[in-house]
Design a protein around this nucleic acid. Structure first.
Lengths: 168, 168
DNA sequence: AATGTTTTTCATTTATTTTTGAAAGTTTAA
DNA sequence: TTAAACTTTCAAAAATAAATGAAAAACATT
């Protein structure tokens, strides 16, 4: 397999995975492209490599910067902006976990917390089932939350070292 | 807050979370509805509660059955089919993890495995960066895979007990 | 086997998400 | 200050995903 072909496969696979996990396919593809590029790329280059429009490239790059996965670079003597991706997988995993926790898990935890407070007739099966289910889901969500928080504080070695051993 | 109101909030929150994670909103809502229902429901009831069409209800319920999150029930003397959800959060988490691993992680692992095999000029920065990035991502993916596999084999107490302690 | 009941299918419609591209906005340097 | 280089915005278009509903199929009852 040639490098060019492998690159395309990687970009495609990353894009697909992203879209299955609620991340815009193009965003995942731009991320993949920058991940395997030794040099920072210009908007023009991203547009050309992935055949996407200027507007799309610009918005996608900004989103990636918001996620903390891509940074702008300015080269002396150049007017253009260059973009490059964080390449340390541990940092990437942390950034994604952090961002999704903040955007998705935290709001759900808040609602679940409210819903577990509900008062009602303990003899009513509808009430009892609701309470039990919501309480259980809340427990699960809290557990996931604790796990994530610990992970976010942890060191890379923890993830690639000790956890691996515990789990293997 | 009333039960009816709380139920709606829960269904809404679950639907939103689902859609953010690549799961059809309606599917997550039907799941939420069945989770908090003490009795198994008919298609008609699901349609009425969520104001969705017969076709949608039918397909969604089938998908939930495919995911192992919902089961059909036949009541003696009744022609209609009844549907009820698995309510044990540990079982739910496992089923979802299992299914997504199979559908999404496994294919990606396969491709990454192929891509790490690529041969090329070690002095070419484009090649070196590709190889390094793909190898690192492959490591991360394998690590996630190991973690999931261990989780899938584990007991509930492991998740709600020991892990919690390790992480707290 | 004819009839009423329930479930499934799927072509079409509707809703949502993503992309485009041209115009407006910014920045830089002569 | 002006003009070219570059970036951002956003209304409209295109692509994609999801939902509808009527018809067909499957099923059960007499």
């Amino acid at each position: 397999m040639e490098l060019a072909e492998a690159k395309l496969k990687f970009i495609e696979a990353w894009g697909k995975l992203g879209s299955e996990w609620g991340i815009n396919r193009t965003m995942a593809q731009v991320h993949a492209l920058l991940m395997v590029s030794p040099e920072a790329l210009t908007t023009e280059e991203v547009m050309a490599e992935l055949s996407i429009s200027r507007g799309n490239a610009n918005m996608t790059l900004r989103d990636l910067i918001d996620w903390g996965l891509v940074e702008k670079q300015h080269k002396t003597g150049e007017r253009k902006e260059f973009f490059f991706a964080e390449k340390d997988t541990w940092v990437i995993a942390r950034r994604v976990a952090e961002e999704r926790k903040k955007r998705e898990l935290d709001p759900v935890l808040k609602i679940l917390g409210q819903l577990t407070e509900i008062q009602g007739d303990e003899k009513d099966p509808a009430f009892k089932t609701f309470k039990t289910s919501v309480t259980d889901i809340n427990k699960l969500a809290k557990n996931v939350n604790n796990t994530l928080e610990t992970m976010l504080k942890a060191e890379e070695s923890w993830f690639f070292g000790s956890i691996f051993k515990i789990f293997k």
